[in-house]
Amino acid sequence: MSNGAHPLRKILLYIDGSESAITAAQFAIAIAKSYESELRAIYVVNEDLLDELLKVKIFVQMEKMDYERDLEEDGKRYLNYIVKIADRKGFKVETILRKGVVHEEVSREVDEYGCDLLIQGELGEVLSLRDSFYEEGERILRKVKCPVMIVRGSDKIEKKYNEM
């Protein structure tokens, strides 16, 4: 936990480009603004997955690099969007884009940033036990060493957020 009596000085928001990540962002902005916490948003380019597809020969090297650039651009776009919606509420959000194994990079950022809380969107639908081993939200939940808040209920949150 970061220094001081305030329990939520630093909040990390994990986004992946999904709609539920937007809901999580709205909730994170609302909480951070209320508690006057620092808020940092993180997106991770899933390099691990790209490497796996290269290994099984689905991708050729050039194509893998092309997709990596695409995913990086996607990530920047998502992060900029979070900055923009926070700005509309008069709140500043820091952003960070990492590359690698998603849950490991998020965990590393949790440690390095020293956050008091990680916020992420509703977990992806896990259709099977097999699937759960690959669902990044689940893996993050298991890996990080800090409290994690999973944000559900998009309609309710959007309504509250718009009233802010």
């Binding site: 992946d16 480009g17 899933n46 997955l49 790209l50 796996e52 597809l53 099984v56 689905i58 997709y67 695409d70 995913l71 996607d74 097999r130 690959y134």
Partner: peptide
């Protein structure tokens, strides 16, 4: 303009 779902779909079918 959006590669994420494409990469995920390919990975899923590979599995």
């Amino acid at each position: 303009n959006e590669s994420g779902p494409h990469v995920q779909a390919i990975a899923k079918i590979v599995k």
